[in-house]
């Protein structure tokens, strides 16, 4: 069936089997292979993209459910010549080893900083009305992005760097 949405600012129309997930639409039908398929069950976060500004697992949603939506993938955040500040910080702080989880980590961390700025509380927020950046907040909010190389301390350092220099 036909579906139209915007990916990284570009209007896109596709004809898809309803079974195609948003992740498979991006990777297999649009050649945007930055978003990765890890577990394909919403457990690892490698497929994280932003839809209408909110981070979601693109493997757990059908492409046909996104008529009219605005999707941002890692390819829409920056380019090799012009890195997004979060991409530059991951390089600077060595926030990865094999790199497979990295696009999802970066999409998630860009959204995490916006969520903290918007005052959305987390499990570790002591007072639900006082939301502030801390390493503990970053660790809790990034728990849906697994890094099997365990680059976690450097990922937190990269996110902190972007926060401090924003």
């Amino acid at each position: 069936m036909p579906v139209s949405f915007t990916v990284n600012g570009q209007a896109t129309s596709l004809t898809l089997d309803p079974r195609v997930t948003l992740l498979d639409a991006l990777r297999e039908h649009m050649a945007l292979t930055g978003s990765k398929k890890g577990c394909d069950h919403g457990q690892c976060g490698a497929c994280t993209v932003m839809v209408n500004g909110q981070r979601i697992n693109s493997c757990l949603t059908l492409a046909v459910m996104h008529e009219g939506d605005e999707v941002t993938t890692i390819e829409g955040l920056g380019s090799p010549e012009n890195l997004h500040p979060m991409q530059a910080a991951f390089v600077k702080h060595d926030g990865f080893q094999c790199g497979y989880c990295t696009p999802g980590q970066i999409c998630s961390s860009v959204a995490v900083l916006k969520e903290i700025e918007a005052g959305i509380p987390s499990h570790v927020t002591a007072d639900l009305d006082q939301v502030a950046f801390s390493d503990a907040e970053v660790r809790e909010r990034m728990s849906g992005n697994i890094c099997r190389c365990a680059a976690y301390p450097n990922i937190v350092a990269a996110i902190r760097d972007v926060h401090d220099h924003a």
Binding site: G42, G45, T48, Q54, R55, I56, N57, L60, T61, S108, A111, V112, E115, S122, R141, M142, S143, G144, N145
Partner: peptide, 8 residues
């Protein structure tokens, strides 16, 4: 859940 799942 996780931040991504709670958004959906």
């Amino acid at each position: 859940a996780s931040g991504q799942l709670r958004n959906k």
